[in-house]
Simulated assay, not measured.
Amino acid sequence: MNRRSPSGAPLHEHDGRAPARPEPSRHHLSITFEAFHATHARKWLTYAYLHTGNEAAARQVTRSAYQQLGRLWPHALRQASVEAFAWSVLKERVVEWLYDHQQPTALTETAAFAVVTQALLRECQQQFALLESQLGLYAAIARLPERQCDVIVLRHVIGYCDGQIAALLGVDEVTVRSHASRGKRKLATALGIDQGTTTRGN
């Protein structure tokens, strides 16, 4: 016997449709958003600082990104990759800030970018140690295609592992490693370095 709704219409237990997924509670949304923020806050701030070259601006950019993400959080949780969706929000805020201030990325001038040199020197010590100026490397990294530049920065400056970078960029780890390898080859070419040894160990 079929149960009936308050209006008297029969309620079929099996009508061929999947039950609707319950909406997450406000408490659940708050907990997941706070957990995401705690995981990424420092690294997002570093990324924003690298591009703006100003701590106050970096805090402004990341605060704006998190405010937007907070408003969109229920939508973000329904995406195939929450990390990739959130990363796109941060990137948009960074690009918007640079456009509004008519300023190119500050990667070349940012003091924190020295970490990149240290990391790459460990991988290609003999070759990169011959550079007359670290600024040549900074400028070369800033001129890389966007994805290759992001991978180098996310890996060597911000400290994300390849799996985390893959989630942020919405690609697989093989693609991340490919971007890193191609980026290093382009850096070697731009800086006149023998590529035979710079590509080992990628």
Results as ranks from 00 to 15, higher is better:
R4Y: 13
R4H: 14
P6M: 13
P6A: 14
P6E: 14
P6I: 14
P6L: 15
S7H: 07
S7G: 03
S7N: 14
S7F: 09
S7P: 00
S7K: 11
S7V: 07
G8D: 05
G8H: 03
G8S: 04
G8W: 03
G8C: 09
A9I: 00
A9S: 00
A9M: 02
P10W: 08
P10R: 12
P10F: 04
P10A: 13
L11N: 01
L11H: 07
L11P: 02
L11A: 01
H12A: 11
H12G: 01
H12L: 10
E13D: 12
E13A: 13
E13W: 02
H14T: 01
H14I: 04
H14G: 03
H14E: 08
H14A: 03
H14K: 01
D15C: 04
D15Q: 05
D15P: 02
D15L: 06
D15S: 03
D15E: 09
G16L: 08
G16H: 10
G16Y: 11
G16Q: 12
G16P: 11
R17W: 12
R17Y: 14
R17L: 15
R17E: 15
A18P: 04
A18T: 09
P19Y: 01
P19I: 03
P19F: 05
A20G: 03
A20P: 01
A20F: 04
R21K: 12
P22F: 00
P22C: 06
P22Q: 12
P22L: 11
P22K: 14
P22T: 10
P22W: 04
P22Y: 03
P22E: 12
E23F: 11
E23D: 15
E23M: 12
E23K: 09
E23N: 10
P24G: 12
P24C: 09
P24I: 13
S25P: 03
S25A: 07
S25E: 07
R26S: 13
R26V: 08
H27G: 06
H27Y: 03
H27L: 10
H27M: 10
H27D: 13
H27P: 05
H28T: 09
H28K: 10
H28Q: 08
H28W: 02
L29G: 07
L29A: 07
L29Q: 08
L29N: 05
S30L: 08
S30W: 00
S30H: 03
I31F: 00
I31P: 00
I31L: 07
I31K: 06
I31H: 02
T32W: 06
T32M: 08
T32F: 02
T32Y: 01
F33H: 12
F33M: 15
F33L: 15
F33Q: 11
F33G: 02
E34N: 14
E34G: 11
E34D: 15
E34M: 15
E34S: 14
A35H: 13
A35C: 11
A35S: 15
F36R: 10
F36D: 05
F36P: 04
H37M: 06
H37D: 10
H37G: 04
H37K: 14
A38K: 08
A38E: 12
A38T: 11
A38I: 00
A38V: 00
A38D: 13
T39P: 02
T39E: 15
T39I: 04
T39G: 11
T39F: 06
T39C: 13
T39Q: 15
H40W: 01
H40G: 00
H40C: 00
H40M: 04
H40D: 04
H40Y: 06
H40A: 00
H40R: 01
H40T: 02
H40I: 00
A41E: 11
A41W: 09
A41F: 02
